[in-house]
């Protein structure tokens, strides 16, 4: 059972206090978008063996959504950050690249 640090509360909490929200950094496609765009937004999800960006909500705490970067194999957590972040922070990306030289990047 994993633990994550809520970037707002600064407290490290266990999974039972969190609510999972799936892949992070999705771009919403609304009316006017093509079927392919909508499909990729609504249905297509990454399932990487390794580095992954996820949404988590501190449901039993401050109620805020935040984002986490972690390794789906080793469960190493590279960092957590605010949900109001359109793409992973550069410093975090650099850290991951250093730890996982073969990583293809977040996109």
């Amino acid at each position: 059972m994993l633990t994550l640090t809520c970037p707002y509360c600064g407290v490290t909490v266990e999974e039972t206090e969190l609510y999972p929200g799936g892949e992070a950094h999705l771009k919403r496609f609304g009316p006017g978008s093509t079927d392919a765009e909508f499909e990729s937004y609504m249905f297509a999800r990454k399932n990487p063996k390794g580095v992954h960006f996820e949404r988590w909500r501190h449901a039993y705490g401050c109620g805020k959504w935040f984002l986490a970067a972690r390794d789906t194999v080793t469960w190493e957590v590279f960092g957590t950050y605010s949900a109001q972040t359109p793409e992973p922070p550069a410093a975090l990306v650099a850290t991951i690249k250093q730890k996982r030289p073969g990583w293809e990047g977040w996109k």
Binding site: Y19, G21, R28, R55, R57, A59, G63, K64, W65, A83, Q84
Partner: peptide
């Protein structure tokens, strides 16, 4: 309520 907060926090912040 969680659904509303999700959209407010993560899409239209």
């Amino acid at each position: 309520h969680a659904h509303m907060e999700d959209w407010l926090q993560c899409e239209w912040w």
